[in-house]
């Protein structure tokens, strides 16, 4: 301290003390602010199993709007929601649920959104079917028993908007050669992310899981358009129809597009469309489409 006072030379010690004190405080607080900022950045990463209540837009802005009061939690009649505690991976005090524990029951009157005093849960959300809490994904096709050819469809049956959010896609069972697979397929256009499917999945560890949308959803390039969708929308093809290919081939030769390549002989009179596997005109498969026919047939298979 004595050396300090010697060094001041002309500077009033009180003034000097004030300056060093101020600088010290400013430096300390600056450090705290920086740490807080960095911590906040990390708190923004939502773990894959944490699903936000209905009416939450993107995670970053939710953390600016939610004041962590828990009124949404209190008004949820199914005790779905909880507030993140210190030590949880979710930003402290913010509401979330874990579908495998308690999924959202998709209340018609959306009491959680009504309870929110800040609008962090968007009050413009009036129909629960429009909620996008997350997106269900059949994450493990190896364990989902539907992929093994077994009948399950539990996820399909519990879905509050089954048929739209989740459908069953019939596929040929290669293994048995004669059965169908009833594959659950989730459609992001309708799935609310309520998590009832994940809750109901009969496996020890669910094969269908709800993830935050940012995690679950891929995206085509923004400029991508699917030709067939555009065609249905417009009612006609938007690109020029295929012109027959012109090759400058030697006399008497032709090009076969099915893989055989250059061959001799005249082309078949009219290029018939390739046979569609299950088109009605196609030759009937050896098995009737009605499984009962096969079962009732004398002598078994």
């Amino acid at each position: 301290m004595t050396r300090d006072t010697n060094n001041t030379r002309g500077m009033d010690p009180a003034r000097r003390r004030f300056l060093t004190d101020t600088l010290r405080t400013a430096a300390g607080v600056g450090l705290v602010a920086l740490t807080l900022g960095v911590y906040q950045r990390q708190a923004r990463a939502l773990p894959a199993t944490a699903i936000r209540p209905p009416g939450v837009g993107d995670e970053a802005s939710f953390q600016g709007a939610c004041i962590r009061c828990g009124l949404c939690v209190r008004d949820c009649p199914y005790n779905t929601l909880k507030l993140a505690e210190l030590g949880d991976e979710v930003a402290l005090g913010t509401p979330y649920f874990q579908a495998r524990d308690v999924p959202c029951e998709m209340c018609d009157d959306i009491p959680c959104v009504k309870a929110c005093p800040t609008g962090a849960l968007d009050p413009a959300l009036k129909e629960i079917d429009k909620a996008r809490m997350g997106l269900a994904v059949v994450v493990d096709q190896e364990s989902c028993i539907a992929f093994q050819g077994l009948r399950c469809e539990v996820c399909f049956n519990v879905c509050p908007i089954r048929g739209k959010a989740i459908t069953l896609n019939y596929q040929h069972n290669e293994r048995s050669g004669k059965h169908a697979l009833f594959i659950p397929v989730v459609h992001s256009k309708a799935c609310t992310g309520c998590g009832k499917c994940e809750k109901a999945c009969i496996l020890e560890e669910a094969a269908i899981k709800v993830f935050p949308i940012a995690l679950a959803k891929g995206m085509l390039g923004r400029h991508y358009r699917l030709g067939w969708e555009q065609k249905t929308e417009a009612g006609h093809a938007l690109v020029t129809p295929d012109a027959p290919h012109q090759y400058n081939l030697p006399e008497g030769m032709r090009y076969e597009h099915g893989g055989r390549g250059l061959m001799s002989g005249e082309p078949p009179p009219a290029p018939s469309p390739p046979p569609q596997p299950f088109a009605p005109e196609a030759p009937l498969p050896p098995f009737s489409s009605n499984p009962l026919d096969t079962l009732n047939r004398k002598g078994g298979l």
């Binding site: 900022g37 600016g64 930003a91």
Partner: peptide
């Protein structure tokens, strides 16, 4: 200031 910069109610984390 941190709330302004991060766009979040950061203080309520701690």
């Amino acid at each position: 200031l941190v709330a302004m910069v991060t766009g979040s109610v950061a203080w309520e984390l701690v």
